[in-house]
Lab assay of single mutants.
Amino acid sequence: CHSECLGNCSQPDDPTKCVACRNFYLDGRCVETCPPPYYHFQDWRCVNFSFCQDLHHKCKNSRRQGCHQYVIHNNKCIPECPSGYTMNSSNLLCTPCLGPCPKVCHLLEGEKTIDSVTSAQELRGCTVINGSLIINIRGGNNLAAELEANLGLIEEISGYLKIRRSYALVSLSFFRKLRLIRGETLEIGNYSFYALDNQNLRQLWDWSKHNLTITQGKLFFHYNPKLCLSEIHKMEEVSGTKGRQERNDIALKTNGDQASCENELLKFSYIRTSFDKILLRWEPYWPPDFRDLLGFMLFYKEAPYQNVTEFDGQDACGSNSWTVVDIDPPLRSNDPKSQNHPGWLMRGLKPWTQYAIFVKTLVTFSDERRTYGAKSDIIYVQTDATNPSVPLDPISVSNSSSQIILKWKPPSDPNGNITHYLVFWERQAEDSELFELDYCLKGLKLPSRTWSPPFESEDSQKHNQSEYEDSAGECCSCPKTDSQILKELEESSFRKTFEDYLHNVVFVPRKT
């Protein structure tokens, strides 16, 4: 048989008469490798580009789960590009990614509803959504962080984005990388972005840091009482949809009607710091009717980097990364020049730590249904340095008659930039024990000054392991946590139920 035959053949030295091919099969003959313009397919066939392209389009058009959109890589027609490569849609070739590779997620039936953290986790790592997304989240724990972890990498949506009755959302900033909504599939009414009845939605994105392009379709905003109209108009300008909307697409009466839409800028007039305090004062603000001013709200939190936005980490279910302080308005003076500047002394802060701070007014709604208010920009203030805590785990070892090696770990709280350490030492008198000992005694162990690591005695271990207080009263049991108490109650309830079950099964009433 021919060298490319495997198993047997019907005619000697003829690659077209093989029972099976050793390498690849091409047009009725066995070959060692697939010549151009053919590609290896499933490690035994040679196919042309049209064959591989037909497989790709067949799966793409069917949208069946589990099928493969075949691509070409290293002269092979394979189910998908290997790690580190992405497909070129024009020629199906796998090309190296520039940075992290995109991950295209194809949605069944063309859309997916995100109504819980669990459903959001199914899209973790996706960068391109081939379909439409509907966000409908009523509640949950730590929602802002969970949504950002699972949806934060999405850069492109081919269909539309719909935010509907998501009472738990305060902001859409968890879509931190969303840059493009194509609108290839539109919501009824030709809408590519749809926001309806979101009672706590206050911000779409921080438009000073976020760009969003909507290729096709219109915007729809109705019944978002805490979303200011200025935020919607800003989205029109940034996304390129200005002029597409009709009169009733953006409701003037049901958007922002319960919001404090600040239209003035508060400026800080005085800032002073110490290692654990920050004193702030800002310019006074009074609405047209000074009785509408209820006070100020001061927001602050630790910020290692200057990239904080107002609604980071917030949701309507209680999660809030900001510390909020309510401040009463100052006494009002008739003389504008003698107006008191409101302020606040922030206490209990960490030394040498940068804080993000902003302040906003708290006002009631005027009778004319106009909203007044003022808010400052987010500023960054760093507390002063102070003395560091003591170095940890000092170790001293003498390696000769004239040297001592000293080692330690950095302090747990540096409280500033540590530039150097101060080492103090003092000579001590020799131990009298060394002169009084009889060095001729056998088995004498000389006193040693070398360091030995501390260890816990058996008594201390027994005390720590004991669940009861000892007789001397030195140790006591740790208080039980809520989960331990709940577990004990469940076990007790189970024992009672099981005992009742045994009584009912074992003891049967005697027939009379």
Rank of each mutant, 00 (worst) to 15 (best):
E231T: 15
S119N: 14
S402T: 15
T185D: 10
D315E: 02
E187I: 03
P336M: 03
D289A: 12
S333V: 11
I378T: 06
Y160I: 15
K177N: 03
F175H: 01
S116I: 04
R182F: 08
D393P: 03
H222I: 04
G343H: 14
S116K: 04
D249K: 04
F290S: 06
P410L: 08
G125P: 02
S208G: 15
E283T: 08
P287L: 09
L266T: 04
S400M: 05
K234P: 04
L123T: 03
T383V: 02
I114C: 04
S319W: 01
K350S: 08
L201M: 01
I114V: 06
K177Q: 10
S400K: 12
F175R: 00
D249I: 00
G217W: 00
D115T: 12
D315G: 13
S260P: 13
A251R: 05
L123D: 00
R182S: 15
T353V: 13
L123P: 01
L279H: 13
Y223T: 04
P329S: 10
S389V: 02
P391A: 01
E310H: 15
H106R: 03
C126A: 01
I157M: 05
K177M: 05
G110V: 02
E246W: 03
H210W: 04
A149Q: 15
L293H: 04
W286A: 03
A149E: 08
S119Q: 02
F311M: 13
G343T: 04
G256S: 06
H233G: 02
A149V: 13
S338W: 14
P410K: 03
P287K: 03
A374Y: 07
P304D: 05
I137G: 12
K242S: 06
P391I: 04
I137F: 03
L161A: 04
A144L: 10
L280N: 00
W282R: 00
L161F: 07
L133H: 00
Y380Q: 02
F220L: 08
T361A: 09
H106T: 11
D289C: 14
A149H: 14
R244Q: 14
S158L: 12
K103I: 09
P394F: 07
D312L: 05
R179G: 13
S319G: 05
V117T: 04
T185V: 08
R347E: 13
D315W: 15
W286F: 13
D328M: 14
E122A: 14
K209L: 06
L186N: 02
A149N: 13
Y285P: 02
N150Y: 05
E187G: 10
K177R: 11
T383F: 00
R347Y: 07
C317D: 02
Y194E: 12
I154C: 05
L212V: 10
P394H: 05
K162Y: 07
E283I: 04
P225E: 10
G159V: 00
V117C: 02
I129W: 04
L108D: 01
G183H: 02
T127Q: 07
W282K: 00
T353Q: 07
N150L: 11
K103G: 12
D335N: 13
R244L: 10
I188W: 09
S274E: 09
Y380G: 03
P351T: 03
L169G: 02
D312R: 13
S171C: 15
C228H: 01
F175A: 15
R202Q: 02
L349Q: 01
N334R: 14
F268R: 00
G313C: 03
L219F: 10
K112V: 08
S269D: 09
A385H: 08
L265P: 03
Q354A: 06
N136K: 04
S389Q: 07
V363S: 07
C126R: 00
R138T: 02
N399I: 04
S230K: 09
D335I: 13
K350M: 04
L161K: 00
A120P: 02
P391T: 03
S400H: 11
V238N: 12
G131V: 00
F221G: 03
N211M: 08
T364L: 02
I232F: 01
Y223Q: 05
S396P: 12
D206A: 14
T371N: 08
K409A: 06
T113H: 09
W205S: 01
P330S: 13
C317N: 04
R370P: 08
D384A: 14
L331Q: 10
E122D: 08
M235K: 00
F299H: 13
Y285S: 04
P304F: 13
Q354L: 08
N190P: 12
A385W: 04
W282C: 15
K350G: 11
I154Y: 01
D289T: 04
A385F: 07
F299M: 06
G240W: 03
L161W: 00
K267Y: 15
S173M: 12
Q121V: 04
F290K: 03
E231N: 04
K234E: 08
L298E: 00
P391M: 03
L266P: 00
P304L: 04
S173W: 11
K209A: 10
G348T: 13
I134C: 02
L178K: 00
L161T: 03
E155I: 07
P287I: 08
A374G: 11
K267C: 14
Y191D: 02
K226F: 06
T309M: 11
C261G: 02
S239R: 10
D328L: 11
Y160R: 05
C126T: 01
S402C: 14
L133W: 00
I135N: 00
L294R: 01
I232C: 11
K242N: 11
P351A: 10
S333L: 12
N320C: 05
L151Y: 01
L161V: 10
Q403L: 13
S116A: 06
I232N: 00
C228S: 01
A168I: 04
R347K: 13
R202V: 07
I357S: 02
G343V: 04
